[in-house]
């Protein structure tokens, strides 16, 4: 066992982990931050996306010890300080960008990383950026729409009904 320390959602945390402990298991099992989900074992579904030092990474594809000393952000830290939904989360609710909710934490974390680098992405840029986030429920329509809306773009014209 090795001690690992990091900042998660602004709080300093530490724990004893094995070499093989994944960041996703450290978050879920050691810190009980179960909002980060694991949907595959080949690093493709993106349900486990978190931010490490401000960048989106797949936490099931990174050893916890690799995040030693890092600033980690998870879905649990995304809401506003008063507990209300942040702009992206609110857009997902407003535009029905989630159904079963399982891929949602990864989607929100990826969307946040995208908008940080590209505050007004086009539809094509959003779709390409989400290449590593699989959703089985929504057909992506409302996810893309929600991210466009979260970036302040008018989505009224996007076909709905």
């Amino acid at each position: 066992m090795t001690q690992v320390s990091m900042t998660v959602n602004g709080k300093s945390v530490s724990g004893d982990v094995e070499g093989r402990t994944l960041l996703s298991s450290f978050l879920r099992d050691h810190l009980s931050l179960t909002g980060t989900h694991v949907g595959c074992d080949t690093g493709q579904c993106g349900a486990c996306v978190v931010h490490v030092d401000g960048e989106a990474v797949k936490s099931c594809n990174m050893l916890a010890l690799e995040a030693d000393g890092a600033e980690v952000g998870t879905i649990e830290g995304q809401a506003n300080a008063d507990g209300s939904l942040n702009v992206i989360q609110q857009a997902f609710q407003d535009h029905h960008g989630l159904q079963c909710g399982f891929c949602t934490p990864g989607m929100v974390m990826s969307a946040a990383a995208l908008l940080k680098d590209n505050p007004r992405p086009t539809e094509t840029e959003i779709r390409e950026y989400l290449e590593g986030n699989i959703c089985r429920c929504t057909g992506y329509h409302n996810i893309v729409k929600a991210i466009m809306a979260a970036s302040g773009q008018d989505v009224g014209a996007i076909a709905a009904e």
């Binding site: 690093g43 989106a56 797949k58 990826s110 995208l114 590593g132």
Partner: peptide, 9 residues
């Protein structure tokens, strides 16, 4: 290559 999260690692 891969996807944005993969490219970050």
């Amino acid at each position: 290559i891969g996807d944005p999260a993969v490219r970050n690692r």
